[in-house]
Amino acid sequence: MYKILRYSFYDLIRSKWCYIYFGFYFILSSSLLFLNNSLAKSIITLMNVIVVLTPLIGSIFGAMYYYSSKEFVELLLAQPIKRNTVFLGQYIGLSLSLSVSLLLGLSIPFIVYGMLISPEITNFISVIIIGVLLTFIFTAISYYIALSNDDNIKGIGIAILFWLFMAVIYDGIFLICLLTLKEYPLENFSLFSILINPIDLSRILIILKLDISALLGYTGAVFQGFFGRKMGILIIGSVLMLWTIIPIIMINIKSKRKDF
C-alpha cells in the first residue's frame, strides 16, 4: 500500500491545485492575522472557515481524483497486488497531500506571527487536527461516492450535494425541527442530530476546546450540559474517528465487488 500511497502523494503534491489550495490558506491566515491583530481572534475566525471549507475541498478532490485516475487504477489492478491496497493507497495519498497544503498554508503565517511562544498554540493545533480529520472524512466519503457511480458528473454532483447537505441544509432542517417541536423535550434528539453530522461535531469540538460558551449555541450547550467539557471532547473525538473509519470500510467492501 505504501508504494501506491507514495506515487499518489508525489503526483498530487506537484499538481497546481495543491499549490492553489496552499496559497488560499496562506493568504487567508495572513489576512486574518493582519485584520484581527490577535492570535486568539484569528483562530476563532479560522475555525469557522475550516469546518466548512475543508469538507468542500475534500469532497471535490476525492471524486475528481478517482475519475481522473480511473484508467491508471485499471492498470494497477492488473498488477500482482490486492485490490484494497490500490484504493486505500490512493485515498490516503490524496488526503495526506490535501492535509499538507492545509497544514503549511495555515501554519507558516501563524508561526511568523509568533504562535510558537504563545499559549494559543494548543488551540491552533486543535483547529489543524479538526481540519485534517474533516479532510480525511470527506475525501473518503466522496471517494466512495465516486467508486459507486461510473458517471463522473453524477458522482461529483452527489459528493457536492452531500457536502451542501451537511454544511448548510442540515442546520436548516435541524432548526425547523427544533421550532416545530419546541413543546417537547428535545435534548436527546439534538444530541443524536449532532452526532450524525461531522461538520457540526467538529464545530462543537473546537468551541468546547476553546472554551467559548458564547459561541456554543443550543446544541453545543446541551452537549456540554449532558457530557461535561472533557467527556464531550472525548466523545466527539471518538465519533469523528468512526466517521473516518466507516467510509474507509465502505470503500473496501465496494472495491472488492466492483467491475472495472
Partner: peptide
C-alpha cells in the same frame, strides 16, 4: 487506453 497520472 494509456492514461497515466499527469504529474509523474
Amino acid at each position: 487506453i494509456a492514461n497515466f497520472p499527469s504529474n509523474l
